[in-house]
Structure formats: structure tokens, C-alpha cells
């Protein structure tokens, strides 16, 4: 299990990184935290001709939390995001989900943006980007563009980012007023990729009735999706909402696959259970934020 030979560059600026990527052509790949890419290289499941290591590019390691949302730079490690209190206040899902990503030593090196660029439907942060209706900023030699999550995720381990391009940050919009979130997952071993995970956002109206309910699931489907569960509980007073009904609805809206660790039916079951459980928690938070 040793990587095949490759060429290596560690540019000191974003422009240089884009230059090298352009010069090296199709065989070039960005190396960020390496926590997904290096295992693939060692197993020789991937053999890019050139790795462009962005770890020395300055200015990509910031977490910027504003009223609008949280902008996470490409070199922000999962661990840094997990412990960023300002980010957690603006968008609580970030820390809640990140806590479920792997184990600490992986989180110390792996990047949140890298996990989005990797587009693994079993990754937590792809779903969170979707659920928060987030986007990424993509830098290419032609300039920067913002790509919304719907346009980003094309298939499992596949994004619309091609050619010489670096995802420089991901933007997670702030949690809306009168809203609460929760995140939960079932994994075979603690720290594993989830067998199934659920992130939810509950939004109340001023009368503390359920206004909107959205959920996004992990390891369910080929690309992250957002499921609107509002109809199951719309207009119900928050303390009388039938979260189980929302769970039931969720089960009918997803189309999971089976694999070694879970049958499709079991995943569907978990979608229902996790939805019900997280909605209760998220609603409580929404209520708090509505009262306050």
C-alpha cells in the first residue's frame, strides 16, 4: 500500500497554485488535508500525475463568522471548525456535524472544504452545506465564482469543479431566526462514516407554530439532498407537532441504497427514527430562539 509515483508542488500563493494546476493539466489534483486522498493513493485506487499541495497557500485558513453566515477557508481543519464558538453561534450545525467526522487525529488534518470537494455522500459536511443552502467559492485562472451546493454535487465523489480550480472557501448561511437545528447519526463504530445520519432545521413562525422543516441525510442517496418535511407538521404548535409523522414522510421521500453495513430498508428505517429524534431537539432549540 504505497502511492504510485507523482510529481509534487506546494505553491506559495493561490495564483501559483492555479498556474501549476493549469500547466500540469488533467492529471493534476489538489491536495488539502489528504485524509481522503492519501488512502486512495496508497491503495492505488487513484494515481494523479501531479499533486498540488495547497497547504502553504496563505489566507485560506480563516473561519469568518458574520451575521450572514460562516465562511470557512479551504485550509480550515475539521478540528478548528469544531472548536470555533463564533461559527457555532451563527450556524450551530457546523460544530454539531463536525463532531461526528472521524476521530480527532483525522480532524486535526482533514479540511472541511476538502470533504465538500471530495463530495462523499457519506460525509457529514456535504449534507450540511446542502441543508444550510450553502455554496463554495471556486477560483480558476479565469477568476472566482460562487457555486451553489445544488450545482456543485454531481454524483458520488464527483463535483462540477473541473480543470484548474481550487475551492477556496465554503459558505454556510446563518441559521435563520426562530429556527433550531439538530444533527444525529448512527455509525457502526463511533467515528466511522455514518450508516445513516440526519441534519434538520426547524423554523417556527412568530406564534411558535411550525413554519418549515427541512432535513438532509448522510449515506442516503448518491448526492446530498434536502428534503422538505414541512407538510407533515405545518402550522402545528411546536409542542404538539407530530415529529413521528415527519419521520414517516421522510421515509417515503428518500431512496437509499444497501451496502455491507446496512440494507436499504434499514437505512430508510433510520431516516425515520433520526428525523423524529432530531426534530424534537431542533424544535426545542427553535423555541428557545423564538422566545429569546
Amino acid at each position: 500500500m504505497k502511492p504510485a509515483p507523482f510529481r509534487y508542488a506546494d505553491p506559495g500563493s493561490l495564483d501559483e497554485a492555479l498556474d501549476v494546476l493549469a500547466a500540469e493539466g488533467d492529471g493534476a489534483k489538489v491536495l488539502a488535508g489528504g485524509q481522503s486522498l492519501i488512502p486512495l493513493l496508497s491503495m492505488r485506487l487513484a494515481a494523479p500525475a501531479t499533486l498540488v499541495d495547497i497547504n502553504r497557500v496563505p489566507g485560506l485558513d480563516g473561519v469568518e463568522a458574520t451575521g450572514d453566515g460562516v465562511r470557512v477557508g479551504a485550509l480550515v481543519r475539521h478540528a478548528a471548525l469544531l472548536h470555533d464558538d463564533a461559527a457555532a453561534r451563527v450556524q450551530p450545525l457546523l460544530a454539531r456535524a463536525t463532531a461526528n467526522v472521524a476521530h480527532p487525529a483525522i480532524r486535526n488534518r482533514g479540511t472541511t472544504v476538502g470533504s465538500i470537494a471530495h463530495a462523499d455522500p457519506s460525509g457529514e459536511m456535504t449534507s450540511v452545506l446542502a441543508l444550510t443552502d450553502g455554496s463554495v467559492t471556486v477560483a480558476t485562472p479565469a477568476g472566482r465564482s460562487t457555486v451553489g451546493w445544488r450545482d456543485l454535487f454531481v454524483g458520488p465523489l464527483e463535483t462540477s469543479v473541473h480543470g484548474p480550480a481550487v475551492v477556496v472557501d465554503a459558505f454556510f448561511p446563518a441559521l435563520a431566526p426562530r429556527s433550531g437545528t439538530a444533527f444525529a447519526e448512527v455509525a457502526r463504530r463511533k467515528g466511522d462514516y455514518a450508516v445513516c445520519g440526519a441534519g434538520v432545521v426547524v423554523t417556527l413562525d412568530a406564534d411558535r407554530r411550525v413554519e418549515a422543516v427541512r432535513a438532509s441525510y448522510i449515506s442516503v442517496g448518491l448526492v446530498p439532498e434536502v428534503v422538505d418535511l414541512t407538510e407533515a407538521v405545518h402550522g402545528r404548535p411546536v409542542d404538539a407537532a407530530d415529529w413521528a409523522a415527519a419521520g414517516e414522510l421522510a421515509r417515503t421521500l428518500v431512496d437509499p441504497d444497501g451496502d455491507l453495513h446496512a440494507s436499504a430498508d434499514y437505512r430508510r428505517l433510520l431516516v425515520g427514527v433520526l428525523t423524529e429524534r432530531t426534530l424534537g431537539t431542533a424544535a426545542a432549540e427553535a423555541l428557545e430562539r423564538t422566545a429569546a
Binding site: R189, K190, L260
Partner: peptide, 24 residues
């Protein structure tokens, strides 16, 4: 050890062969 019908071991890594951590 999860073999498929073709005799391919489906979980030939620590990622999928679930040797427990302390948490289990």
C-alpha cells in the same frame, strides 16, 4: 469477512472490517 458470490472480500480494510475501538 464479507465475501460476495464471486469470492471478492468486500471489506478488506479497517474502514469496513469493524475491529472495535474502545467505544465499542
Amino acid at each position: 469477512m464479507a465475501y460476495d458470490a464471486d469470492g471478492q472480500l468486500q471489506n478488506a480494510s479497517f474502514m469496513d472490517f469493524l475491529m472495535p475501538y474502545a467505544s465499542e
